[in-house]
């Protein structure tokens, strides 16, 4: 079973299978919009707010998603598998290494 995922920030849409996580669905056809990091629930860069839809979520680092956030639809996209069409907003971002200005 495959569902439509919509990134509200950009309007980007992609399809994601039930057995995939959202980032895998996004990447398989070269789509972009959610930052991609460790893809294992540890680094936090793919943090999203799911505004509508049903999903299952695997264990995520509590450094990046608190229990309260998890209850309120916040998750790491690499740990989320869809069970219906999904709409989400991107919260995470890639940190930049500190490179001092000259």
């Amino acid at each position: 079973m495959s569902y439509k995922v919509t990134i509200a920030d950009t309007g980007e849409e992609f399809h994601c299978r039930e057995l995939q996580h959202l980032l895998a669905g996004m990447q398989q056809l070269g789509k972009k919009g959610i930052p991609v990091g460790c893809r294992s629930g540890g680094c936090g860069v793919c943090k999203v707010r799911i505004t509508s839809g049903e999903y299952q979520v695997k264990k995520m680092s509590r450094d990046h998603v608190s229990e309260q956030e998890e209850e309120n639809g916040i998750a790491l996209a690499c740990r989320v598998s869809p069970r219906s069409d999904i709409q989400l907003q991107v919260l995470g971002h890639l940190k930049k290494i500190v490179t001092p200005k000259k």
Binding site: V36, G37, C38, G42, C43, V45, S61, L94, K95, K96, I97
Partner: peptide, 8 residues
């Protein structure tokens, strides 16, 4: 980008 910015 991921190599520069992703840490755990």
């Amino acid at each position: 980008d991921s190599f520069m910015g992703v840490v755990s």
